[in-house]
Amino acid sequence: METKEKEILMKNTLFEACMKQQWERVSSIYHHSGVVAWEAKITKSGDTVLHILINCYHPAGSKNLLLQIKDMVDIYKLNNILEDDEALRVLKLQNDIGDTPLHLAARLGNTEICTHILSRAQKQGKAYELIRERNFKKETPLFLAAHRGKMEAFQFLLTVFKKENHNPIDICRQENGDTILHSALSGEYFEMAFEIISELPELGNYVNEDGISPLHILATKPHAFKSRSYLGSVDLIIYHSATVRSLKRAKQSAEDDEILNNFPANWWTLVEFFKFV
């Protein structure tokens, strides 16, 4: 059988095993077929096996699938199989919308998978290369974690990126100019928004291509705030059960009081919010 035919057969076998969720069979093919299998895009949407497994994973599902994902990523870590740069290249493979495996893991919010994907690159000081990869909407894995309100994954990716001495502001915007702060507020992930402001306060002043700032977005969500209440603690602004990290209120001057009193009562919370920017 010619090499091309063998590759087609291998891809079809992998696809069939994935569709039947025969993960041990997938793992066996993965182990014995080498780089050809790892790089193979086996769906019409351009997914590799690793893309498929991460997409299929659910925290409430089988722990065995998580172990299979880790096992497949571990293959890339073996120095006698892949050189560092080659392993990085495999982990950067994109599907037809430009997502890498790390994009999927960040969107899922699974810090354990994110950690495993980045572990070898971290040792080389190159984890930032995976974290700054953009899909075709110009979204990075960090952006997607914030967009979905995945706090733990967001904090992990941001910490890793900063440790490698890179400016995270560059990876916090998508193609229309929205920042992670725009996105968190649009999704009403207010705890995430406060975390972003705490870590990257300069994002409070960014506007998208339509000139929309985070304050504009916040102003469209009056249902999220207590009307006619003068807030002493940020967590009081949330109507619902979301728990927001307490933040100390800055001292207010007499001049601030006068300015604040000129605002309608239901805008006070917006003023209070941006005192932390």
Rank of each mutant, 00 (worst) to 15 (best):
I180P: 03
L231C: 14
T179M: 09
L66N: 02
N208P: 01
M72R: 03
L236K: 07
F15C: 11
K137F: 06
G61I: 02
R228D: 13
R173C: 12
I212T: 09
Y76G: 00
P214F: 00
S253L: 04
R148S: 14
A145S: 12
L157R: 00
S186Y: 09
P264S: 07
E2H: 12
Q155M: 13
D85R: 10
E129R: 10
A242P: 06
M72L: 08
H58P: 07
H182A: 05
E83M: 13
C114G: 02
K44A: 04
I259G: 04
T140C: 00
R148M: 14
T48S: 09
G98E: 02
D85H: 12
L270I: 08
P141I: 15
R173M: 11
E112W: 01
V26Y: 00
L104S: 10
V49P: 00
D85Y: 11
L9Q: 14
A121K: 00
T179E: 12
S241D: 11
E83W: 01
E199S: 13
A146N: 01
H223T: 07
P264H: 04
H31S: 14
C56H: 06
I29G: 12
G125I: 05
E2F: 12
L53Y: 00
G125T: 01
V234G: 00
K123S: 14
G232T: 13
L93A: 05
H32M: 04
C172T: 12
D96E: 01
N135C: 08
Y239C: 10
N266M: 11
R249K: 09
V35N: 06
K150V: 08
N135H: 03
T48Q: 04
E2N: 09
Q174C: 08
L218G: 02
G109H: 03
Y189P: 03
L144R: 06
S62L: 05
K70W: 13
I113L: 03
L144F: 04
L14N: 07
Q124E: 13
S28D: 11
L78Y: 12
V73H: 12
L218K: 03
N205Y: 07
A105I: 06
F263Q: 03
Q252D: 11
G177P: 01
M72K: 03
G34T: 07
L67A: 06
E164H: 06
D84Q: 12
P59K: 00
R132K: 08
H147E: 15
K63T: 05
K138M: 12
I197M: 15
S229V: 15
V244Q: 14
R107M: 15
E195P: 01
D96F: 03
D256I: 01
T111P: 00
N110T: 05
V90Q: 04
L91V: 02
E152M: 11
I217C: 05
A105N: 06
S253C: 02
M19R: 14
H32F: 05
I238E: 10
E199P: 10
R245I: 15
M151F: 10
N262V: 02
R107Q: 15
D84H: 08
V35S: 07
L142C: 06
